[in-house]
Design a binder for these strands. Structure first.
Lengths: 339, 339
DNA sequence: TTGAAAGCGATACCAT
DNA sequence: ATGGTATCGCTTTCAA
């Protein structure tokens, strides 16, 4: 298919060393032969083979981007920002989407290793096993995680303030007068899950509200799971007056269940989301949520990796981004306050 | 970093040929040396270098996925399906997102060529220049396009029935009694843009409704553009009673403008979208839209490429998928029908 | 059953 | 200013 330097050398009647010199823009070559070879290369549609180049340079200019499935639609701008940032930094994006939201990513990491990527950006799922990522670090591959904290990982990690996110949502609902608040969270296996829950519990604690464990549920990341869980809560005798949901997308599923039961938001039940996904202001009821600066986090993540790739000292520090409550229409004081 | 076959050969005291044989699972090797080498390889954490392998095999097992930015959030499931399908087929995904929705993709294609990808899946922007893609075909790279038709391209192309989509939306509104319908479409440079508009115009024609060119607008793919355009329409003397928007995401922007003007949907203005994006049933007003089987189209696209990659005869045919109208709450008869 | 050698395409270094 | 050669890590073919 593509022609090689040898083809050009033969066609030009020179050695391939000369061809390379002409094409690399170096100085020690006569202007005329350079012109001639450049013209020939263009005519023959020569394109350097990056694969061969990586072999000699010991550098592929490839960055593996290993993300959990939800990131694609929860924060499409993340993947866009990452790809663009890497490209501008001279790297190509080798994309891997975890099979399952909570999957191990083991085989994907193997693949990444065999592909000899120079670096990896990982958006780990809620149950990502630390060992898998550790393996990348041990293999000498530059790694930065985004939006998920892996315990004891010697790599820079970028996260939003999940503890604060949990607190903000809970405090907002408590401030409105809610006492019977359900929390639809994610697995406690992950640091994110633990921090969120801790924030929520601390808010309850400080307000002197006892935690009703029956209202603390774990859900998967998808509409259906949230919808099912919410339906259960509504059907139970202990119907909450407010729902704190760990992600906007799940909040949408929760709303579906609420509307499906003939109830309304926020009149019957208040709902708080998390993430401030593009479009949550146009939900059937504009969603009160906690804003995570996803785009800024992604940009920072890419910059950190590019710095490491260019040899700058990498400090395996965790960077926490601030989050803020955005109040819209899905929350209101509980309808009836019994004394 | 990673150890090579030579390292193992040296450590095992055999030639590298023997190592390769042991690791490749071939038969002509004694069981004991194989065991020994396998153990050694595992211990030394040997991982075959795919880069080097591609060089000898003339095959990278890389597929370039070149998409316009909107695909990421308009149809996140597309990129997921594509990545998963390719991975299952033994290929890795080299992702490129066009800089601009209407950009040329020229440099991305160059990059793809230099990376020696075996194949490419392209989701072209509305103004994608045919020559760019043609170049891929000429370079002998297997190409399939998805959700966008490039004129005169010798490659299989997968699209939804855009003509029908235009018709369905228009006919629905006309059937409800609307006469003053605005159409927010995309550039006519693309086949998609032309087909949609043709469907709309045919529906108008058959209903005997004259086309008011002032109500036929071209917008960019984003909330803001649709919002701005809608605001203009509302402010003009010729306020339409219905809006036919070429994409759900743009429809959301249009709704934002409508609500911003203090009007309501569908009482004051009906809105029809296109795409049936996940979540459009949970818009502030559940959206009436034309459903495109995005996931099925993506799966079919990947399968087609995998077939081509495995040497099966490729028929450069265009496959058109059926679309269907999904009626929700954003459309209703016009409030006042003047006689 | 095992070893040796050529080659994939580009690079770097030494020689002319 | 230009040519020759070893090398990157692996595959394939031919010898032993």
């Amino acid at each position: 298919m593509g022609c090689t330097v040898n083809d050009i050398a033969r066609a030009a009647g020179v050695s391939r060393s000369t061809v390379l010199r002409a094409l690399s823009g170096k100085v020690d070559i006569s202007i005329e032969t350079r012109k001639r070879i450049e013209a020939l290369a263009a005519e023959m549609r020569y394109r350097p083979n990056y694969i061969a180049r990586s072999l000699t340079q010991g550098k592929t200019n490839l960055v593996g981007v290993l993300v959990k499935p939800s990131i694609c639609y929860a924060s499409h701008s993340v993947i866009e920002a990452v790809e663009r940032g890497l490209r501008e930094g001279g790297y190509s994006t080798l994309l891997f989407i975890s099979g399952k939201e909570n999957g191990t990513d083991k085989s994907a990491v193997e693949q990444l290793l065999k592909s000899r990527v120079d670096g990896v950006i990982a958006v780990p799922g809620s149950m990502a096993p630390p060992a898998t990522y550790q393996e990348l670090v041990e293999a000498g591959i530059k790694l930065v995680t985004l939006d998920g904290l892996i315990d004891d990982l010697a790599a820079p990690q970028i996260v939003g303030d999940n503890y604060k996110a949990g607190r903000l949502g809970a405090e907002h609902l408590i401030g409105l007068g809610h006492r019977k608040i359900a929390y639809l969270g994610i697995s406690h296996i992950s640091n994110v899950g633990r921090e969120r829950a801790r924030g929520v519990r601390d808010a309850f604690w400080e307000a002197g509200i006892p935690v009703d464990e029956r209202l603390f549920r774990e859900i998967e990341f998808n509409d259906a799971s949230a919808e099912r869980c919410t339906a259960e809560l509504l059907a139970s005798g202990e119907r909450p007056t407010a729902l704190l949901v760990w992600h906007d997308v799940a909040a949408r599923g929760a709303m579906r269940a609420i509307f499906g039961a003939g109830l309304s938001v926020p009149e019957d039940i208040s709902v708080v989301g998390n993430g401030d996904v593009l479009g949550s202001d146009m939900f059937r009821v504009p969603l009160t949520t906690v804003h995570f600066p996803a785009r800024e986090m992604a940009d920072f993540c890419v910059q950190t990796l590019l710095d490491m790739l260019s040899g700058k000292a990498a400090r395996p520090e965790t960077t926490v981004f601030n989050v803020e409550l955005v109040v819209r229409s899905s929350t209101a004081p509980p309808r009836v306050i019994k004394n």
